[in-house]
Structures are given as C-alpha cells and as structure tokens.
Design a protein around this nucleic acid. Structure first.
Lengths: 337, 337
DNA sequence: ATGAAAGCGCTAACAT
DNA sequence: ATGTTAGCGCTTTCAT
C-alpha cells in the first residue's frame, strides 16, 4: 500500500479505466455503480493508496463539516467536560470541532472573523456567552448554541442548568437540616446562572417563610479565594449564619478553609454545600456535599442541537435546561441545637 | 455593511473594475498594487462585505492551516492545560487546532484516517502516545510532536517532563527531612513517565546508600482510588514506611485519605508528596506538597515545534524536557524521631 | 502594476 | 450504469 501523497480521483480513474466521476460515486457509496466496476475501482484505490482530500470536498460541497466551540478557557473542568461531550457527539455526526479559548471580548470577535466569517466552521457553540459582551459578536444567521445562558430574544439555541431549581434544592436541603440562617456566595452576577441560582435561593427561603438578608449574600468570582474572602467578610461583619450555599465547589472549598482557620467546625458549626461535583470533591475534608451537573451530557446535547440547526436551516430554536442532582456527603449536617 | 453570504473575489473585482487577481493581491497584502487600485478594491470589499473563503484558499494552496491534537481525554487537567497552551500558541502562528479525545487505539486510528490521511490537518500533537499502541498508528511523514514521551527512534519530535529528575527531586526532598523508608506509587508502567519517575526514585535512593525495596513500590492508574488502594495494600502487608511519593497528585490525595482512615497522621506519622500541583492542591487537608509542572508551557512549546516542523520540512527533530518545581506545603515534614 | 489562463481535487448536473 | 462538462473560490504562473 503505497503512500497517498497526492493521488487524486483521476489517477484512480485512469488506473481502473473509468471516469473520475465513477470513482467519486464509489467513494461516496452511490448505488449507481455496477458491482464489477465498483470492485475494479476499489482495487485501484487500494493499489494506489488513494485517500480523498477533505478540503477539496469541502469546497465542492460548500460544507466544511466543522464546528467551533469557544469558551473563556479550555482548562476549567466544567468547560473541558462540555467540550469533550460536544466534540465526541459532533464526531458521531461527521463533524470535527475546533475549540479555542476566548478570554475576552476582543479575542472572541477575532475568532468569529477567522472561524465563522471565513466559513471555516459552519456551526458555533459558545460556552458562557454572557461572561462579557461576546454574545453580541456572534454574526447573524450562523447556527449557534449558547451553553450556560437563559433563552433570550434572538434566533439562538440555548442549554443551561436549571439553575433556579438548583438554588432551591440547595436551600431546601439546608432547610431540611434545620438551618434558617443560610448565607450565599454567588458567581459573577453578570452571568445568568449566578442570577438564577440566587433567584432559586431567595424563592426557597421566602416560600419557607424566612427573610432574605442582603448582608448574607456576597458575590464571588468562582475561585476558591473568593469563597475564602466572602467568609472572612462575614466574620468581620459578625454576621450570624449556620449554613452556606456556595454557587460552585471551588468557592465552597475556599469557604471551608476560611471557616476552619477561624476554628469554626464544618459541618458541626456551619454546613456548606457547593455545586458542580468537581473531581475529587469527595476527597476534601470534609467530603463536599454538592449538586452534580452532567456537563458531558450538556456538551453532547449542545452538539446535537447544533447538528439539527445546521442540517435543518430555518428550524425552530430550542431551549433546554438540565437538572442537577443532590450529592449529600459530609460538609452538611443537622443544625446543632 | 451587507452580509458576506456569498460574495466572491470576482464580485469585488467587478465592483472595483479590476481583475479578480488584483483583488487577490490586495487581500494577500502584495506590494505589486498601486495605492489607488488598492484603495478602490478595499472600498469594494467594504461595500460588499466580502470575506475570503478559507476553504477555497486551503484548496488552492494545499495547506489547511490546521493542526490536530489528540489526547486520551479532554477533561483531565493536565491534558486540558497542554491543549490550551498548544491551541493558543498555534493560533499565534495562524493555525487552528482540532482537538479530539481518543480513549483507545482504534479510535485513534480512525481519527488518523479522518484527520491526517484526508489532509484535513497538516500537523499532529499526540498527548501520551505510549498509553497504548497508538504511537504505531501515526502515518509516516506527518509533522508530529509527542507530548509525554521519551525521545525514540523515528522521525518525531518529543516533549516531556524531566521525569527522572522529578523522581530524584521528590526522594531528595524526603531524604532531606530524614525519611529513609520511602514508598512509591507509580502511574501505569507502560507510560514512559511512570518508568522514568521510578528510575529517578531508585537512583536517588541508591545514591544515598539506601536499598530499593520492591515491596514498597506499587503501580497505580493515576486515580485517587488507586492511591488509596496502594496504601491499603501496604498496611495489610505490614510494610513499614515513613513517607510516600505518589507520581501524581490524585494518587497522593487518595493515599492521604487511606492513611487518615487508619489513624495515621499526615505529615506527623507519614509524609506524602505528589506531582502536578493540580488546581486546589493547596486546599486539601493537609495542603499538598508536590512538584509543579508547567503544562501550559509544554503545550505552547509543542505547538512551536510543530510550526517549525510544518514550515521547514526535512528539519531536525527536537526533543525537549521540562523541569519540575518543588512546592513544599504541609503534607511533608521532618521525620519524627 | 495588472490581467488572462490554468488548476487545486472534488461534486453536481446533465447526458447517454 | 457511466461519462462529460462545469464549476466551488481561490492562488499561481506567465504575459503584457
């Protein structure tokens, strides 16, 4: 089997004594080829080591069979999982994924130009589109799925967690353990999910007849450090609370560190619940109570929606919300007396 | 600025009253265009909202300006970081990256066919090529960089940690604290890095005049669970040790969990050192002593080597090793009497 | 400095 | 069932 250096469809045709179009039919699995001819062509392909040139095919069909997936970064575990799910699912449908990190608005705009305007990719997945103004940079008429954003005006598919329900669930778990003074550490408030999780938190509290105390709500930036600092702040301000809902696991871990350093026991004195179920969440001390999100599944679904959008132009835009699953470990416990 | 739906170079040419070739010259920044003509063409481009079609350009030049990066998965923090570094660096040089996960040999082979043989990508980065037989699946003559593999025969660039030095450094740190009975949890032994880290461990021990006891060496699979189980095993076998070197952080964390459950204190009774400096390594209890590897830098360097290989065919193959940096936190301490 | 012609490797449309 | 003729949108000679 010789090298496939630059054997073209015509070389194969010559070798098999047929027209190049017949070769094209064979490699595309058309029915309209006699068995004998097909056989001869396949032998020629094998003999010459022919491999179809993807670029040429893309040009001829006008379809690059490629998606782009943009996230603030590629290393965050949640982003990476979504990307993995989307990439794998896309492949199943014949598409490859170009993923790139767009830390800011400008980078995002540049990538739009190079990826979308140049028609290098025919579909787009944007993770965290409301992290900044990037959602406004998406060109019209490009099949797109936003991940981690609420449905909005505009012709775009969206997938997100059911963040409101997640917020409620966290609070209800804590309420069920007897806690009433529940503090909240949010993510950046420009992100939909932070707002929705907070809304769920407030709703659950109010429905249970408890007040929402603004002093017990602090904004973090998803980092462990910001969770740590939120607790420091409350301690300085002498805020009383017996439980904390951190909107992600990293902030929860930071909060626990801070509590411990102040000799406050978790969960005996204060319960802490996070959200994500990040890797090793059960290996922290104490093992983290949290809410698991199916990030791989979200990524897969994003790819599925995108395939649908690309293959059925003018279709209806979909909006989905994924549920969260409570994982009770040991950072939450019954409120002590 | 109208839509760029399907404006071609010829539309622009007509609009500007020049030949399409002149438009080509303008968008490629050729010198051989008079300022006035250039001006007119640029106005036409603006007026029509023209954007060059990347696929057409690829076909004409024979260069897809795309790399592929294959890893066992996309979510592992070390892989994701390497990918992020490589993707970003590649972009700097005008290349996009298609990344995909190849959990096994067969998937890898299929991806080679779809990505490389079809000339959809012109360069290849393989993370962990010796995880299985995948390194044999890389076609000849494709510019390739192996990440996480020792230099070998064959025309391929490689980058890895200086794993041998890392193994030594871990042991020397422990030796310096007075430990002599140092147990080792390795990664899968088919991977170069596991072997090399073990070689460094053994060399450092021997140079210090201490025996290498095979009973104190157990093979893990990088997971926290395998670290946990290794310690269980030693405990059952009543092996005596005062320190553990786990070849990655996850296994270190698992080992610590196991030790604690047996009422063995870390670091008072047993010191534990890992390798990676994974996110939140400092948030475990105790904060993990480990060795940091610059995964983003490794990824960037991989992309740089690949650009060189692609742009200078027939060049020399490079092999690089990155150093590791000891991060002393609190899971290691002076051996108690 | 600019244009005309040819072709990259394939698919699509129309014959036969 | 198979071949012929045209492109896809661009770059690359080679003229002028």
């Amino acid at each position: 089997m010789p090298t496939s250096s630059s054997i073209t469809i015509r070389d194969v045709a010559a070798h098999a004594g047929v027209s190049h179009q017949t070769v094209s039919r064979v490699i595309n699995g058309s029915e309209r080829v006699s068995p004998e001819t097909r056989q001869r062509v396949e032998e020629a392909i094998e003999a010459l080591g022919y491999r179809p040139n993807a670029t040429a095919r893309f040009l001829a069909t006008g379809r690059p069979l490629t998606f782009a997936c943009l996230a603030p970064n590629l290393t965050d575990y949640t982003f990476a999982s979504i990307i993995e799910g989307a990439t794998t699912e896309a492949r199943q449908h014949g598409y490859f994924m170009i993923s790139a990190s767009a830390p800011d608005d400008d980078t995002f705009a540049t990538l739009m130009e190079q990826l979308i305007s140049s028609r290098r990719a025919e579909g787009l997945i944007v993770i965290n589109p409301y992290a900044d103004g990037r959602h406004t940079r998406v060109p019209q008429d490009v099949p797109t799925v936003f991940v981690g954003a609420r449905p909005r005006e505009g012709a775009i598919n969206s997938i997100s967690l059911d963040d409101d329900a997640a917020g409620r669930q966290a609070v209800q778990h804590l309420l069920g353990l007897g806690h009433e003074r529940i503090a909240l550490i949010t993510g950046p408030l420009e992100e939909d999910c932070s707002q929705d999780r907070q809304a769920g938190y407030e709703a659950a509290l109010q429905e249970a007849g408890h007040p929402v105390d603004p002093a017990m709500i602090l904004e973090g930036d998803w980092s462990a450090t910001s969770g740590y600092e939120a607790v420091q702040q409350w301690l300085e301000d002498r805020i009383n609370f017996t439980a904390i809902f951190a909107q992600n696991d990293r902030m929860a871990v930071g909060a626990i560190r801070s509590l411990r350093e102040s000799e406050i026991r978790v969960p005996e004195d204060v319960s802490v619940i996070g959200l994500d179920d990040m890797p090793l969440a059960s290996y922290f001390d104490p093992p983290l109570t949290t809410m698991r999100q199916d990030m791989l599944g979200i990524g897969r679904e994003a790819a599925r929606l995108l395939v649908t959008a690309v293959e059925n132009p003018g279709g209806v835009h979909q909006h989905e919300r994924f549920p969260v699953e409570l994982i009770v470990r040991r950072s939450t416990a019954q409120k002590s007396s």
